[in-house]
Design a protein around this nucleic acid. Structure first.
Length: 223
DNA sequence: TTATAGATTGCCT
DNA sequence: GGCAATCTATAAT
């Protein structure tokens, strides 16, 4: 499988309408799209290779299952907005709200394939990658260290300097935004669907979507 | 007021 | 494979 991130095609931001649909559809269609972060004058870009759908109040595994709280309020708002939460005392996780206000569906970003800004992303992750490793992407494949830049929900937020304080509640639908989603026309060949990772409730629901064969998909441990 | 589980990761053996 | 790190929400005392 060749790296997908070398396209110079135009990047068009995803619309509010894109997110105004059920989370499973949005999660599936987000695969192959770009997450773009403006960071200190540089563009950090990653392609979405793994995402999970959470179906709001009817979904026992969703943060919204117990109703609206200050933490999850963004999920109950309009579509296309970032919901960032802090988990296990260590990590931020990025979601985007789906469906109209009043419905609390959302999609969790679980893994990205780095496209540009690799050196900065590696630095934000605390990885001391050699220049030769950073060039891996343009050559044949990916080193395991390179793979750890953004393969995991906590890793990708760290690689893009995404925090709750800075980004929770931010609309992800404007190309002028500090953080947004875009479509460059690239499409995955094959999509796989599995149960969600590390959820104990509704553990049999097939709501995890990933690009089959992509090396940046997160570890598949299921508790 | 205290306990515990959680949409995780990295380091240890 | 085990487990510590350590914030947040909710359940139990």
């Amino acid at each position: 499988m060749q790296p997908s991130g070398v396209s110079a095609r135009q990047r068009k931001p995803l619309s509010v309408r894109f997110f105004n649909r059920d989370a499973a559809t949005v999660a599936r269609e987000l695969l192959g799209k770009l997450l773009v972060r403006r960071y200190q004058g540089e563009l950090l870009v990653g392609r979405v290779v793994e995402a999970e759908a959470y179906l709001g109040q009817i979904d026992p595994a969703a943060h919204a299952s117990a109703g609206q709280t200050p933490r999850n309020a963004v999920l109950f708002g309009p579509p296309g907005v970032a919901y960032v939460y802090f988990i296990y005392g260590n990590h931020y996780c990025l979601n985007v709200s789906c469906m109209p206000a009043g419905s609390a569906e959302g999609v969790l970003f679980r893994a990205l394939e780095p496209v540009s800004g690799l050196a900065t992303m590696a630095k934000l992750r605390g990885l001391d990658l050699r220049a030769s490793e950073l060039h891996d992407l343009r050559l044949a494949g990916w080193s395991s260290r390179l793979r750890s830049i953004s393969s995991g929900p906590g890793r990708l937020t760290q690689a893009m300097a995404i925090t709750r304080e800075a980004h929770n509640g931010m609309a992800l639908t404007s190309a002028r935004s500090e953080l947004f989603l875009a479509d460059d026309g690239w499409r995955p060949e094959r999509i796989a669907v599995t149960p969600r990772i590390n959820v104990t409730k509704a553990a049999d629901r097939l709501l995890r979507f990933l690009i089959a064969g992509n090396p940046f998909v997160s570890a598949k441990r299921i508790r």
